[in-house]
Design a protein around this nucleic acid. Structure first.
Lengths: 182, 182
DNA sequence: GATTTATGTCAGTCATGTTGACTTTTTTCA
DNA sequence: TGAAAAAAGTCAACATGACTGACATAAATC
């Protein structure tokens, strides 16, 4: 083995000082890079839609999850996005100001602000899902018939164990009841 | 079907004004969200390693690709990362200043600056690959035996068609010859 | 010798994130 | 009932990593 290949693949010998000395660990550098490039193109899709509105990717994420969880509280959104209240604040204010999201006080607990997409917001969120779904449909079409299931299982398994329950709940739950639509 | 479900799944009726009216398009909102959460955790892994050095994710990306392609030109790196010369400049300068990357004039074309990882740089890049490989290994372990192949094919298929050849070349090519190691 | 290429740099801006401190409103609970 | 806690919002300052535009230098090419 030449020194050249040691550069390419970390190679078994030296364990990365964090685990007991068991089997030599395998490098998945190929998948690491494919994941990088795939995600880059995947999140790039909505950019063209976003641009005309003067919105960025942060707006995409916020609108997406509000649309998927109408009546969501601000705190839930913060937990999902893992950003600070101040960061969310700016983006959310813009979405509200421009009429994509509506925020209403909760009926049961009036401290809460429940977030709802407006008709305009729903339409935009639909466009985001549509463009990314087209990429996924095309990708799955190229792979075998079991590709969808395999992709789903792989992606779930890539998520931190302690977050999986919450993510699965979020992704699969039936939509919350529609608000007393304004 | 209630109006509630129309929120959750865009529903076939209205095509997103960009394609001929063929079959109603299917929504892959579930995979969209799983991809988001999986990538979030995936890129979060290196953060703990980065922090002690005062480096960010930009440093991770640059060092990774320099390490994987020793002797790479600055222009190639710009093409891969799709950022501007000015953006790369700062990050690269820090990596050079702190002894993780070395830049040498090309032997054939002396305008070029060829980028090489130092021993220290290689070690750090190895740690990045190791921590992300552990996540991948664990994920694949949870899925079936064909999971690796399925994941690879899915990720490749998610990349823009026109970039695939270049990405595959980058990911699979044998490492460039080692420099006349300083 | 003129032009092009590869690289670097100065200056300013923007998007999106961060901390820390503080306020207001409302609910909870001892 | 009154104190504490919770949900949300806001002000200010700052960090990171992008961007544009303009320009400089060295070296290769035609």
């Amino acid at each position: 083995m030449t020194d050249i290949n040691q550069l390419a693949e970390p190679a078994p010998p030296r364990a990365p000082a964090s685990k007991a000395e068991t089997a030599p660990e395998r490098s998945f550098v190929e998948l690491i890079e494919l994941f990088f490039f795939a995600y880059r193109d995947f999140v790039g899709d909505p950019d063209e839609i976003l641009a005309p509105f003067g919105f960025g990717r942060a707006h995409h994420r916020v609108l997406h999850f509000v649309n998927r969880n109408p009546g969501m509280r601000v705190t839930e959104l913060l937990d999902i996005l893992r950003i600070t209240k101040q960061s969310l604040g700016r983006v959310l204010r813009e979405l509200v100001d421009e009429g994509f999201v509506e925020s209403r006080a909760g009926a049961a607990d009036r401290r809460q602000r429940l977030l709802y997409p407006t008709t305009k917001g729903e339409a935009l969120a639909r466009d985001f899902v549509a463009i990314q779904s087209r990429r996924i449909a095309s990708a799955l079409g190229e792979c075998g018939p079991d590709a969808e299931d395999a992709a789903r299982r792989f992606l779930v398994a890539m998520i931190d164990r302690e977050d999986r329950a919450e993510v699965e709940r979020l992704v699969h739950r039936a939509q919350a009841a529609r608000p007393p639509s304004a």
